[in-house]
């Protein structure tokens, strides 16, 4: 498949989902010599949760920051590709001020670290109200009321009082709820969640996932959910993109991907989920050997081949295209010679 084309992976039969809220195609983001994102394409429909999965350094957070236009200009830039947001058109190349007007209004972002993502010197209610005032031009009092209402919506108990708290007075789970309240303050059509549960306790994780799901139903927004945890994917996503070293290596519906992972990297990720084992049958948890290659000097051929148990000659020579597998579901995409047409493996 060519870089510029847009593979829309959408298994939902809902016809309303046909017009995506977000279409990303051929996205390339560089940090100096580092090609952090190297031609990524996907689309998200309203009410759909798309998970981007990958280990640290796979470029998944960079995708989110690129969409938001938050790549620090001193560090890197979005080199190529298109980011199309329904109702706002092409985002790439928009002026800073125009981009700032869209951020927080049409798309909201939830961050990984609730402990450090709120400004320590302002009350949480003030921080939420500031977003509302910025985008909806409300009065101070109306914005404060709206902030309290948002806190109630995200399940913060006694929101009237909590709105007057400073971030350090709240627990991690509560802070993440505040972050979510800020992200959805203006009913965005797109929510980007960058590992929003990674820093939280397991019980709190489940609550936050349920909250995000509930808000999605209520707002009908599309969600791009970034995680490295396939168990989270199983819980919330309709579609999944697996990223490795800056490219999508596999994308499919959650059900299809979890049932029959095609790419050796996806299989590796699934095998390394610890499961309860009966006594006496304990075995070492399989791991994917090695680490993500240096993105500044990628070798030719398949990016995963140095860690791939099934690599063969062709993998070292030519990078496989992201294409439907030769056999099986034509709606899925995989970047692997094992599944390419006419290649015997």
């Amino acid at each position: 498949m060519h870089e510029g084309s847009i593979p829309i992976v959408n298994a939902m039969s809902d016809p309303a989902a046909a017009v995506p809220v977000l279409e990303v195609s051929g996205l390339r983001t560089r940090f100096g010599p580092l090609r952090a994102v190297d031609g990524v394409s996907f689309a998200v429909a309203p009410g759909e949760t798309l998970c981007i999965v990958g280990e640290s350094g796979s470029g998944k957070s960079t995708v989110a920051l690129s969409i938001m236009g938050l790549i620090p200009p001193a560090a890197g830039r979005v080199e190529a590709g298109s980011i199309h947001l329904a109702g706002h058109g092409e985002l790439r190349g928009l002026a800073d001020a125009a981009m700032a007007a869209i951020r927080g209004r049409a798309m909201g972002m939830i961050f990984q670290e609730p402990m450090t993502s709120l400004n320590p010197v302002f009350k949480v209610g003030t921080q939420i109200a500031e977003v509302v005032r910025r985008h909806q031009g409300m009065s101070r009092a109306a914005a404060h009321d709206r902030a309290v209402e948002l806190l109630r919506l995200v399940g913060v108990p006694s929101p009237q009082m909590r709105a007057l708290d400073y971030p350090h007075q709240l627990s991690g789970g509560m802070r993440q709820r505040v972050m979510i309240a800020m992200a959805i303050a203006c009913d965005p059509m797109l929510i980007l969640a960058d590992e929003p549960t990674t820093a939280l306790d397991v019980t709190i994780q489940a609550q936050i996932l349920a909250l995000i799901e509930e808000l999605k139903q209520r707002l009908g927004s599309g969600i791009v959910f970034i995680t490295h945890d396939l168990r989270v994917v199983a819980q919330i996503a309709q579609t999944v993109c697996v990223m490795y070293a800056g490219v999508v290596v596999e994308s499919a519906t959650t059900r299809a991907l979890l049932r029959t992972p095609l790419h050796p990297y996806t299989s590796g990720l699934m095998a390394s989920i610890p499961a309860a084992q009966p006594r006496g049958t304990r075995r070492r948890l399989p791991v994917i050997a090695g680490t993500v290659p240096n993105l500044a000097k990628l070798p030719g051929g398949c990016r995963f081949r140095s860690r791939c148990p099934k690599a063969f000659d062709l993998c070292a020579e030519v990078e496989p295209p992201l294409a439907p597998p030769a056999k099986g579901d034509p709606d899925r995409l995989v970047r692997c010679w094992l599944h390419a047409d006419g290649v015997a493996a």
Partner: peptide, 25 residues
């Protein structure tokens, strides 16, 4: 800091981010 990125992500104008959120800290 993360909260500066978060302030930018919520669409606050750069001047407000720097003078309102960053400077006080």
């Amino acid at each position: 800091q993360d909260f500066i990125t978060a302030a930018r992500a919520s669409g606050l104008p750069e001047r407000r981010v720097v003078f309102g959120h960053a400077l006080r800290n």
